[in-house]
């Protein structure tokens, strides 16, 4: 369903990137990286509702659409979908992010994970892969 799922730390360094097609990954990373501009801008102007973590569509190119989500600790989640995929609605994207956030929270609860390290958790990876393939 999604092409790529990424977690970016509050310092804007990638902490987890998983993509459906490895050959696209670099291009998508470039796009996610440039989307950080828009996330930063949105964070700077201040959100009205602190509980609304979903940022919506950040950036779209001919092939990809980048959606963003930012936690209260400024950890950013990105989901990239194919521009031609018209089946996915806003609600479904939100649902993906919520799942991702839950998985991330679980990961943080793990005492063996050091916050700030690159994410290598199998569980998290499973959830992310599930979002990519759409059968979660």
């Amino acid at each position: 369903m999604a092409l790529c799922v990424a977690v970016v730390s509050k310092e804007n360094a990638p902490k987890y990137v998983a993509s459906l097609n490895p050959e696209d990954e670099l291009q998508i990373q470039y796009e996610i990286h440039s989307s950080i501009d828009f996330v930063e801008e949105k964070l700077k102007t201040g959100k009205k509702d602190m509980r609304e973590l979903y940022l919506g569509l950040l950036y779209s190119t001919e092939n990809h659409k980048v959606y963003g989500y930012v936690t209260n600790t400024k950890v950013k989640f990105f989901v990239v979908i194919d521009s031609s995929n018209l089946l996915l609605r806003d609600n479904e994207i939100r649902f993906m992010f919520r799942k991702l956030h839950t998985a991330y929270t679980d990961l943080m609860c793990n005492p063996f994970y050091i916050p700030g390290d690159y994410i290598t958790s199998e569980n998290f990876d499973k959830v992310a892969r599930g979002i990519l393939t759409g059968n979660s």
Partner: peptide, 13 residues
């Protein structure tokens, strides 16, 4: 720029 922000894959390329 990319390296400083930790985007290793891009920096590698």
């Amino acid at each position: 720029d990319y390296r400083d922000e930790g985007w290793i894959a891009i920096a590698y390329e």
